[in-house]
Design a binder for these strands. Structure first.
Length: 460
RNA sequence: UGCCUGGUAGCUCAGCGGUAGAGCAGGUGGCUGUUAACCACUUUGUCGCAGGUUCGAAUCCUGCCCGGGCAGCCA
């Protein structure tokens, strides 16, 4: 007797005599002389229909085989007499493994995403979350494929870090000091006595460490969790999220933008090819235009404009914005939306931002006013990629430390990369969950991450 | 963190000053190679919490808690 997943069974080419399958009951329909049971084991969206005849000795417990209970079935795989499915399993035996009473929250009807979010321990068993997390799995795989095919080296950058990257301040502190942190003041705390003998934090980016490895392996990437302690309450921010950060030596901003564009396109293409079943469900229940949009993204090159061109387009648009457009300030969400959703109607890469609104490590342009930063904006989500060419000139970098009030001693190793064999290099961060939102049409980041962490919420 | 909005049955929601409703789920019976099955009957509530106004509050007011949207921060 061969034990198979539902996915394997449904892709069988011919009838099968002795097959065993395990899963959770999705629905049962009783007839006079037999019952239909549909089971799902998460291997695919579709359920396997099981036929249980009244004459079967196991039929006596049929009432216990309720929605949500786990079962093991063995029998014959035969072509279905009924419409709607090719195969069905004619049970020779069915065993209840774990019962599920009537309080099981997942019904056969649709549930709101908000309700399912509250039962994150059960929502993977729903159709929609099954699709989301299977797609998430495939997307991780595709990310690695993309980079491995291009000879990038995967580097595991640290989760615990002593550098706060750009002095942003919104970091989670890592400490073993107890009790004294309740007050706002931490001036009295002697961090030399703490576990790492200095203040430490959860990483907000693996970029600086990735730069180290790019300075040895030429092309590297990271793919790991990232933590931001900002009190952000939006549908596209989480306190813990996953980020993909390639870093490339001997690469300028052009090459960086090319890489970001081809990565995004590769991931769209891979999803279209490998997650068709899931995408159909999202198109049906979440976003009617999803498939159309994904195909559209593949067909056309991303629009590429400088920050100052973007500002001019916005100014000339005649569009009324809540926040005025002015050169020198950050583009607001509404501005980004206008560019990508209304003006260009496709992903837009904006590059060469004013120096003052970008961090210390971005490479200064010859004009002395702008830096080689770039953001990829996509319809519906906004910023999905943020990156730059890095400042490789030691003197310019030191100058940046001054204007950003950073202590060069804290970054001595970062500066030494510029001292010993410095090289033009570039990289970017792609928000994994934001990519998932784009690919699924799911509007809330909390629904594309298995157990979301957001301000005030860290259940499960 | 600010602004907006919501919290009524297990789920989705109606009721918006006169004392609790519908659909679905659950239960019972029937019917059927069914498939978000169908038909009939049927159980279920501190109306988020606390206070106030009122003869009377799910309904109006205040505070708090929780959800959602938007903005900022960004990926």
């Amino acid at each position: 007797m061969e034990k198979l997943l539902v996915k394997e069974i449904l892709s069988c080419q011919s009838p099968y005599k002795n097959v065993r399958v395990e899963g959770w009951v999705r629905t049962r329909r009783d007839s006079k002389t037999f019952s239909f049971i549909e089971i799902n084991d998460g291997s695919c969206l579709k359920n396997l229909q099981i036929i249980i005849d009244v004459t079967l000795s196991d039929y006596t417990n049929i009432n216990q085989l309720t929605t949500g209970s786990s079962v093991a079935v063995f029998g014959k795989l035969v072509e279905s007499v009924g419409k709607g499915q090719k195969w069905e399993l004619q049970a020779d035996g069915i065993k209840l493994i774990g019962a599920s009473d009537t309080s099981y929250p997942l019904q056969k009807k649709g549930h709101s995403q908000e309700f399912l979010r509250d039962i994150a321990h059960l929502r993977p068993r729903s159709n929609i979350f099954g699709c989301i997390f299977r797609l998430r799995n495939r997307l991780s795989y595709a990310v690695h494929n993309f980079f491995q095919e291009r000879n990038f080296i995967l580097v595991h950058t640290p989760i615990i870090t002593a550098s706060d990257c750009e002095g942003a301040g919104e970091l989670f502190r890592v400490t073993t000091i107890n009790g004294k942190l309740n007050g706002i003041e931490d001036n009295g705390i002697d961090y030399s006595k703490d576990f790492f003998a200095r203040p430490t934090y959860l990483t907000v980016s693996g970029q600086l460490e990735a730069e180290i490895f790019a300075s040895a392996f030429t092309k590297v990437y990271t793919f790991g969790p990232t933590f931001r302690a900002e009190n952000s309450n939006t549908s596209r921010h989480a306190s813990e999220f996953w980020m993909i950060e390639p870093e490339m030596a001997f690469c300028d901003l052009e090459g960086n933008m090319d890489m970001a564009e081809s990565l995004v396109k590769y991931l769209v293409q891979d999803t279209l090819v490998n997650c068709d079943e899931d995408l159909q469900l999202f198109t049906r229940f979440i976003d009617k235009d999803l498939l159309k949009r994904l195909n559209f993204v593949l067909d056309k090159p991303f629009e590429r404009i400088t920050y100052s061109d973007a500002v001019n387009i916005l100014k000339k648009s005649g569009q009324k914005f809540k926040f005025p457009v002015s050169y020198g300030s950050n583009l607001q969400s509404e501005h980004e939306r206008f560019l990508t959703e209304k003006h260009f109607k496709r992903p837009v890469t904006v590059f060469n931002y004013p120096r003052a609104i970008k961090p210390f490590y971005m490479r200064l342009n010859e004009n002395g006013k702008t830096v080689r930063a770039m953001d990829v904006l996509v319809p519906g989500i906004g910023e999905i990629v943020g990156g730059s060419q890095r400042e490789e000139r030691l003197d310019v970098l030191l100058d940046n430390f001054k204007t950003h009030h950073l202590d060069p001693k804290e970054y001595w190793w970062y500066l030494e990369l510029r001292k010993y064999g410095t090289v033009p290099h570039s990289g970017f961060g792609l928000g994994f969950e934001r990519m998932l939102m784009f690919l699924t049409g799911i509007p809330n980041i909390r629904d594309v991450i298995p157990f979301p962490r957001t301000p005030g919420s860290a259940d499960f």
